[in-house]
Amino acid sequence: MTHDEILELAAAYVLGALEGSEEQAVREHLATCDLPHPEFEELGSVVPVLAEALEPVEPSADLRERIMRAAARDLEVRPAPGAPASAAGTATPADAPTAPAYPPAAPVSRDRRRRFWARPAWALTAAAAVALAVLGVWNVRLQGDLAAAQAYRDHVEQVLAIARQQGSAIAILAGDQGQNAGLAAVGADGAAAMVLRGLQPTTGSQVYEAWVIVGNSAPVPVGELSMRDGVAYLTQNVGKIPPGSTIAFTKEPGPGSKAPTLPVVSAGKLAG
């Protein structure tokens, strides 16, 4: 989109009235265009006051209780006091070689957590094997590319090796139309492997970045995918991630992105 076309979208952008792809185009433009965009601030400055026009309405009394309970549960899984919680939003694989500190995790009750960790490893492996069979057959038939199929199988084997461990979780990955399918596993110790097929090749400095989203927290980058024979993969320690967290992948203009560039090309939820 041109600078002028982006300006045309300013009012809808600040009001939140764009489709996801348009909104993303505006974001990318604002991040990369050197020209000033005063219209965005000018129009955007009015938007917060719109809410002032509403008569305040009291929510039910038990909403406070629900929120405070969920927040208290959060504390149980937060990093220890003094841990650099703020690093979670800014850590990149480059400047954080150790496992990144995650934002406070989604509320998971003690009981649920115990059940999760106690789930037998064979159940995970069985689930992973089914996923492999389905995805493998689908991919080979679709692509008919033996080298890619072999590379895919090799990396799926790494994923399965982690999935077999006690306390691991797996995610079946796919784009919104079922494309870019793959598999990810995260071990109890944070060791992770993920593999995807069908991603568009990158050009120039572009990379595919993996993100972890814990609960409703902002996505945290965990590493760039390597590409070989049309297969994208990542093997590295990503830190402990609670079940129910989402692993998502985006194509970034270059390495080291701190916030994802939409659209999400593939994603999946970690489950035990």
Binding site: G20, S21, I213, N216, P219, T246, L262, V264, A267
Partner: peptide, 14 residues
């Protein structure tokens, strides 16, 4: 059209 994939909490990304 929603931003991103359905399984991703859309707000986290937007």
């Amino acid at each position: 059209e929603l931003p991103g994939h359905e399984q991703v909490p859309p707000l986290a990304l937007t």
